[in-house]
Computed example of a mutant assay.
Amino acid sequence: MKEILTHINGVPIHRNFVENLPYNPHLKTLLKEKRRAGILGEVLFWKKVRAGIFHNIDFDRQRIIGSYIVDFYVKTLGLIIEIDGSSHDEKQVYDGIRQEYLESLGLLIFRISDFDMRNNIGLVMKDLEYFIIQHFGTTPSSKIP
């Protein structure tokens, strides 16, 4: 059994640390620019999760994985959170290739629309809790006797 990271709504959440992720150091400059850009949905999400205030889970903002920069990453879960704004409207093929690559590394991706982040933040955070419970939690009904 994997080590318990935290509990969400009474459900134990188990660590799922994905090791040896590829890293492209040539993206460091772009990473700094993205952090400074401060897209509203990302800033709002960061305020909800920074410093472990979301169930004591540590989130990294703007993390390089391979040749991509993801919006948020939870290394103890192998979980990526992407906040999709209007820039993603014409990039479905690119986003699909990117997602397939990241998932091939053993990572899970939770997508949020920038609109929902700005207008339904409470619901988004509940959806994130449910996603984490569903993928990393152990409920009494899922235990094998």
Rank of each mutant, 00 (worst) to 15 (best):
M1H: 13
M1N: 12
I4H: 03
I8N: 00
N9R: 09
N9C: 05
G10T: 02
G10N: 03
V11T: 10
V11A: 04
V11D: 00
V11Y: 00
V11Q: 01
P12C: 09
P12M: 07
P12H: 07
I13N: 02
N16W: 08
V18Q: 10
V18P: 05
E19M: 13
N20P: 05
P22L: 09
P22A: 10
Y23G: 05
P25W: 10
H26L: 15
T29D: 12
L31T: 08
K34D: 06
R35L: 01
R35V: 02
R35H: 00
R36T: 02
A37W: 06
A37L: 08
I39E: 14
E42S: 08
V43I: 11
W46N: 06
K47N: 12
K47L: 11
K47D: 12
K48V: 03
V49Q: 00
V49L: 01
A51S: 06
A51C: 05
G52I: 01
G52D: 07
I53E: 02
H55Q: 04
I57D: 03
D58A: 13
F59S: 01
F59W: 03
D60G: 13
Q62I: 07
Q62P: 07
Q62T: 05
I65L: 04
G66V: 09
S67M: 05
S67N: 13
Y68R: 09
F72Y: 10
Y73S: 13
Y73E: 13
V74T: 08
V74G: 05
T76A: 09
T76K: 05
L77I: 05
G78V: 04
G78F: 01
L79Q: 01
L79E: 01
L79K: 00
I80H: 07
I80W: 07
I83L: 03
I83R: 02
G85T: 01
S86L: 09
S87Q: 11
S87K: 09
S87T: 04
S87G: 04
H88W: 02
H88M: 01
V93H: 14
Y94A: 12
Y94W: 12
D95W: 00
G96N: 13
Q99T: 15
Y101V: 07
L102C: 11
L102N: 09
S104M: 11
S104Q: 11
L105R: 08
G106H: 09
G106L: 06
L107T: 04
I109K: 10
F110L: 05
I112Q: 02
I112F: 03
S113T: 12
D114G: 04
D114V: 04
M117F: 10
N119W: 14
N119T: 15
N120H: 15
G122S: 15
L123T: 15
L123C: 15
L123P: 14
K126F: 15
K126W: 14
K126P: 14
L128T: 03
Y130A: 11
Y130D: 11
Y130K: 11
I133H: 00
I133Q: 02
H135N: 13
F136V: 01
F136I: 01
F136S: 00
G137E: 05
T138A: 06
T138E: 08
T139K: 07
P140F: 07
P140G: 06
S141V: 12
I144G: 12
P145L: 14
P145Q: 11
